[in-house]
């Protein structure tokens, strides 16, 4: 079984994702919400690739290989989608602590001021517990923290996404401060945050200090 990625014949096995197949031959596909320890959410759409014959682009993090599939990871259609998503994102939140995203943007020639006349998502910085702060001005809604808090790691369910559309946000039960939620301060959410929206305040007193690499692999 094989697929063709950017003209390269790549041997693959059943069940493998496009992302994994590309990785095998050293092709790095940009990604944001993807994290190897979490269920792929396929929501950032930065990892979209062009699959010949498909009506839309497909997210490489979840799309499974099919024998003979012809994939383009850098076509103009793909680059336009990625570039526009990053331009939209940069006009919405503060990406200054997301170096991977800034590197992708530079490579794609994205104009990060292109939508600067639009509304931003702005919040106070929440400093309501001894362990970490929540600065949602930097939150890209990748939902990794919600997943880590829930079924993917901690089974604590202190976090949710509230609201809808552009004004969705990571939230607690009726915006409760963290100490009033079910949060056990395990630190997993902080560890998986890719943009510095969640930041530890000092050494974690908990015996379960975070062990997961928060950053996506190097581009």
């Amino acid at each position: 079984m094989h697929v063709i990625i950017d003209g390269q014949r790549v041997p693959v096995t059943e069940g493998m994702t496009i992302l994994e197949a590309a990785e095998q031959v050293g092709i790095h596909i940009p990604r944001l919400c993807y994290h190897q320890s979490l269920t792929p959410a396929a929501i950032c759409r930065l990892c979209v690739v062009e699959w010949e014959g498909a009506r839309t682009l497909v997210p490489a993090c979840v799309a499974r290989v099919q024998d003979g599939a012809v994939i383009h990871t850098e076509s103009e259609r793909v680059r336009r989608a990625r570039r526009t998503i990053l331009e939209l994102l940069a006009s919405t939140v503060d990406l200054s602590e997301a170096p991977d995203l800034l590197a992708y943007a530079a490579e794609l020639n994205a104009d990060l001021d292109r939508f600067a006349d639009g509304a931003r998502r702005e919040f106070p910085v929440y400093d309501d517990n001894p362990f970490y702060i929540r600065d949602y001005n930097k939150c890209v809604l990748c939902q990794r923290c919600v997943q880590a808090c829930g079924n993917d790691m901690q089974f604590t369910y202190a976090l949710t996404v509230s609201g809808r559309g552009f004004y969705s946000r990571i939230d607690t039960f009726y915006h409760a401060p963290m100490p009033e939620t079910t949060c056990v301060f395990c630190g997993n959410c902080v560890a998986v945050c890719p943009t510095g929206a969640l930041k530890e305040k000092g050494p974690f007193p908990s015996p379960q200090s975070p062990v997961l690499d928060a950053r996506p692999s190097e581009p």
Partner: peptide, 25 residues
């Protein structure tokens, strides 16, 4: 209200935060 939602969450065994996420959706 939070009070009412808490009661629903407990009765149906759904995490509190999830109930809030649903209501605001």
């Amino acid at each position: 209200s939070p009070e009412v939602s808490r009661r629903v969450a407990a009765g149906l065994k759904v995490p509190l935060a999830d109930v809030f996420g649903v209501i605001t959706f």
